[in-house]
Amino acid sequence: MVIKGIDYKKCTACLKCYKLCPMDVLSYEEKTVKIKYAEDCQSCYLCVYECQSDALKVEPNRPIDIYDVYNRKLV
């Protein structure tokens, strides 16, 4: 799964998602939370569960193929 977007009309910039993300997917720049490394999202949903304004969107499909160390497609 991967984080798809932030609805900035709903986002209050409380920074809960930014502080909770264990993979450092989000960044805080210019007083705004932004998606910096979407491909690193591990679908833990911490950001979605903690967002009181329901501003984050996570979808079940990865936009990229994932390969193991032997170059075999995993997903």
Rank of each mutant, 00 (worst) to 15 (best):
L15A: 01
C51V: 04
Y70A: 09
I3M: 04
K10F: 00
Y45S: 13
E29P: 00
S43Q: 10
I3L: 10
V33E: 00
E50G: 13
V69R: 10
P63T: 11
Y28M: 02
K57Y: 09
K31G: 05
R62I: 09
S43N: 14
P60N: 12
A55V: 03
T32L: 13
V48L: 15
V69Y: 12
G5N: 15
L20S: 14
E59G: 14
R72P: 01
Y45M: 15
C21W: 01
A55G: 05
N61Y: 14
V2H: 04
K36S: 11
M1R: 05
C17F: 03
Y49F: 13
Y18P: 06
A13E: 15
D65N: 14
V75W: 11
Q52C: 00
M23I: 00
Y45C: 11
P63D: 13
V58Q: 02
E50W: 11
E30R: 11
E50H: 14
K16W: 01
Y37I: 00
Y37A: 07
L20Y: 06
M23F: 09
K73H: 06
I64V: 10
I35A: 06
I35W: 02
K57M: 11
D68P: 10
N61T: 14
V25Y: 04
K31Y: 03
R62V: 08
I35K: 07
Y18E: 07
G5C: 03
C41R: 08
Y70T: 08
Y49K: 15
K19E: 09
C21G: 06
I64T: 05
A55K: 02
D7L: 04
C17R: 01
D7K: 06
K34T: 13
A55P: 04
V33D: 01
V75M: 10
C14V: 09
N71M: 08
V33K: 00
Q42E: 12
Y67T: 05
C11D: 04
D54H: 13
N71A: 07
I66S: 11
I66F: 07
Y70N: 13
C44E: 06
Y28R: 03
P63Y: 07
L26M: 05
Y28L: 07
A55E: 04
D7W: 04
K31D: 14
C41I: 08
C17Y: 00
E30T: 02
Y37Q: 05
C47E: 03
K73Y: 03
Y18D: 07
V33G: 00
I66L: 15
Q52Y: 04
I66P: 00
T32K: 15
V58D: 05
D65A: 12
Y70M: 07
